[in-house]
Amino acid sequence: MFDTLQDRLGGIFDKLRGRGALSESDVGEAMREVRRALLEADVALDVVRSFTDRVRERAVGAELLKTVKPGQMVIKIVHDELVATLGSDAQPISLAAAAPVPILMVGLQGSGKTTSTAKIAKRLQDRDKRKVLMASLDTRRPAAMEQLAVLGQQVGVATLPIVAGQSAVQIAERAMQAGRLGGYDVVMLDTAGRTTVDESLMAEAAEVKRVAKPHEVILVADALTGQDAVNTARAFDGALGITGIVLTRVDGDGRGGAALSMRAVTGKPIKLIGVGEKMDALEDFDPERIAGRILGM
């Protein structure tokens, strides 16, 4: 794809060789190719639009350097702007609050919340030497609580004992109490998946947030998501005030435009990426790498 974008831009700019600076109309043609490349990478349409506007502004009037092909220069501007939008500095999960620090994990069904909860707990325990408690507030999906309990055993992190019949809010209260009494540093709250149009489940999540007062509200989202990424990110941010994003399935061969979409519409940092099903398959977010992927480099 990078080759394609490069080829296409190269084709457009070949005829400009020897000119002084890029004009508005030269750049306009290039921006149509950039738009297409971003859409093929699943960047959401309104994000593509504001993005190409910014790139256009930077590119118009840019000096054509003798050594650099104009096509490559535009690609560099696009790349740099992608990195800037994705957020240049890595932001870890913050624990800067009174212990036990509550972390709430939310997202659509099947996005990777339970898996990511256990991965993050393992990381906080092994790298940051924190005492972590995990609790599943998922009273809906069959064997959801067992899933977190099994993962807890695998990574050696405690899970809140399962009590049948409690609501998500009651479990959240019990988890925070157990966190305080047990001297835990962090309490990770895994929740049931929910669509953003499910008003009662979105209200339940808001109620959980009210009682647990999480220091981080992490939206867990699938890197393979298409245009819906903007709806999802806006809705979860609007209802719950997310503090960061974990992008899963970055080990796939998706182009990852969802990262740009979600970051652009919420302004919230992508904190970590999931790169596999195993418990150590969690990495810091690297905007350069995702920018390269979006461009197919």
Binding site: E40, A41, D42, L108, G110, D222, L224, T225, G226, Q227, D228, A229, T232, G252, D253, G254, R255, G257, A258
Partner: peptide, 11 residues
Amino acid sequence: LDATVGQNALG
């Protein structure tokens, strides 16, 4: 296939 998936569904 998950309805939220984008172009990766083709692959």
